[in-house]
Amino acid sequence: MPYNWSKSDANAPAQELQLWPHQSLPPKGYAGFILATFILILIPLVPLLGSVLLWGLLPFLLLAVGGLWYALDRNHHNAQVLEILTLTDKDAHLIRHNPNGAAQEWQCNRYWTTTQMHETDGPVPHYVTLKGGGREVEIGAFLSEDERIALFEELNRALRK
């Protein structure tokens, strides 16, 4: 699962939860996919070597590979999200690091912190939020549906301790 619970220090009672989007294509796979696509697109051009048609088709094929590269690169950039929830004896503190480098923070007394799951009312099914301190914030919206359900149960257990 693309999240991990850890203790921040062996002596401290604080727990830390880190969440990140799943990256199914590692950097080597990314380069290999672009290279394989480029080679497969060039195969139909082999019979056209030496003809004028090659120069007519080549820009469009290169544009297709460039568009694929741009789309994969943009997807990778947009998936650079990290959410860190720190639970101490007294506080719950959530920091979300967005792809553009901006950080959003939320803090609440742990006693008043509640988790809620919006099964159909959220932007995604089984939308998980933390509520407290006069605000309601989302957590793990980028996770899959099964992962959000498991996260909700784990957050409830962690907050009850």
Rank of each mutant, 00 (worst) to 15 (best):
W5E: 06
W5V: 06
D9M: 09
D9W: 13
N11Q: 14
P13D: 12
Q18V: 15
L19V: 07
P21G: 08
S24G: 13
S24F: 08
S24K: 10
L25T: 04
L25P: 03
P27C: 06
P27D: 11
F33Q: 02
F33Y: 11
L35N: 00
T37E: 00
F38C: 13
F38D: 08
L40D: 01
I43A: 08
I43F: 05
P44R: 05
V46E: 02
V46A: 12
V46K: 02
L48K: 01
L48W: 08
L49T: 10
G50T: 04
V52T: 12
V52K: 09
W55M: 11
G56P: 00
G56C: 09
F60L: 10
L61T: 05
L62Q: 03
G66T: 10
G67P: 05
G67R: 08
L68M: 14
W69D: 04
W69R: 10
Y70N: 09
Y70V: 13
L72C: 10
L72W: 05
R74Y: 14
R74M: 11
N75W: 14
N75L: 15
H76V: 11
N78Q: 15
V81S: 06
E83A: 09
I84V: 15
I84F: 07
K90G: 00
A92F: 05
H93M: 05
H93I: 10
H93A: 08
R96S: 13
P99E: 06
E105Y: 11
W106Y: 09
C108D: 09
N109S: 13
W112Y: 08
T113C: 14
T114P: 01
Q116N: 13
M117N: 07
M117V: 15
T120H: 12
T120P: 01
T120F: 11
P125E: 08
V128G: 02
V128Q: 01
L130R: 01
K131I: 10
E136H: 00
I139Q: 05
I139S: 03
G140N: 07
G140I: 01
F142E: 06
L143F: 09
L143A: 06
S144W: 03
E145L: 07
E145P: 03
D146C: 02
F152P: 00
E153P: 00
E154W: 01
E154H: 02
L155D: 02
L155P: 01
N156A: 10
A158T: 07
R160E: 10
K161A: 11
